[in-house]
Amino acid sequence: MIVIVDYNAGNLTSVQLALRAVGVEAVISRDPAVIADAERLIFPGVGAAGSAMEGLRDLGLTQAVIDFTQTGKPFLGICIGCQILLGSSEEDGGTACLGIFPGRVAAFTPAPGVKIPHMGWNAVRFTRDHAVLQGLPTGSHFYFVHGYYPQLDDPTSPLGVTDYAGVTFPAIYARGNVVACQFHAEKSGEAGLRLLKNFCAWDGT
């Protein structure tokens, strides 16, 4: 069973409907036992890092999510769900995060003519092969909405990078069974659906 984690961070319906469009049924759950039993886990999210971490804590799901990443079963973090896998975020006056990926989340620097959040379709240049990118050409466009961006300590983690506001940041990254994308795969048209389909076929290695 594919489980979408419900931790009051929105956006769950869209992920479920996008999976259905590629022929995959997923359940939405906030039950730690259901999460532990999942064959693969999707960890979505919109909003702010602070409230996302609070949502996990209030529902008693922090450990369930960390534990799942250590099972070897496929795990996909999306948007806020990708950011809070890192050690910390500058958002909400500094937020301690899950620490699954070494690194931190930094704010884009406002500048004249640069709109924050980074909102819209941007190209992702792939830097490494991975099963979840199968069939997608480098430079594919995905839909982004975020005011903060990931900075990874491990230079081998990024699968693809994107340019915005004077920085080049990892838009999708992976380590072992964990994949994380900053863009909203579920709102990224055919490219996003392909990525979700690939994830659902991936064995996590």
Binding site: L17, A21, Y143
Partner: peptide, 8 residues
């Protein structure tokens, strides 16, 4: 609409 359209 959400069942048919996978863009914002």
């Amino acid at each position: 609409v959400a069942r048919e359209v996978f863009i914002p």
